[in-house]
């Protein structure tokens, strides 16, 4: 069976454009795993980890909210606001982001600011988690 063609695009850039054999994505109603030959699907994504198998090796991305489309031609398009590849996550940066977000949650009282800070806090925490885990597995 032929593999899946995965494309991950974020606001800033196209992160992935590769043939993969399996994708696990954080859909709005729970995590889904996609194998070749999956039914055509359009779904919303929530903040979480997107894992795909490329040449038998797992790769992880931290993605924020967005959309995932599977077409009949085994083509998977992931559209997200932001996405960071696991290897590009900087632990220090994530920690700094956590601190900054916590700070602004404490200090600000505007609703929009709070929502934004909370979202970036969640993302930073998730990034830290993924970064720490990948460190452990390497050692």
């Amino acid at each position: 069976m032929s593999g899946l063609l995965l494309r991950v695009v974020s606001q800033e850039e196209e992160l992935v454009n590769a043939k993969v054999s399996q994708i696990t994505a954080p859909a709005a109603s729970g995590e889904i795993t996609i194998l070749p030959g999956h039914a055509a699907l359009v779904t919303q994504l929530q903040l979480g980890e997107l894992t795909y198998l490329e040449d038998g090796k797992p790769n992880t991305l931290v993605v924020s909210t967005g959309f995932l489309t599977i077409s009949r031609a085994n083509e998977v398009i992931v559209i997200v606001d932001t996405a960071v590849a696991e290897r590009n996550i900087s632990l220090q940066k994530a920690e700094a982001a956590v601190k900054a977000a916590e700070q602004s949650i404490v200090s600000s009282d505007k609703r929009e600011d709070l929502i934004q800070a909370e979202a970036s806090l969640r993302r930073a925490l998730l990034e830290m988690k993924v970064a720490l885990r990948s460190k452990k597995t390497k050692i």
Binding site: S29, A40, L41, V42, S71
Partner: peptide
């Protein structure tokens, strides 16, 4: 093709359309 929608087509449309407009202007 027969697409599945998760949660529903209407809900996704409600999210995607404003997203599309935001992005078109950006």
């Amino acid at each position: 093709t027969e697409y599945l929608f998760e949660p529903s087509a209407q809900e996704i449309l409600d999210k995607l359309v404003p997203y599309y407009i935001e992005n078109a202007i950006f």
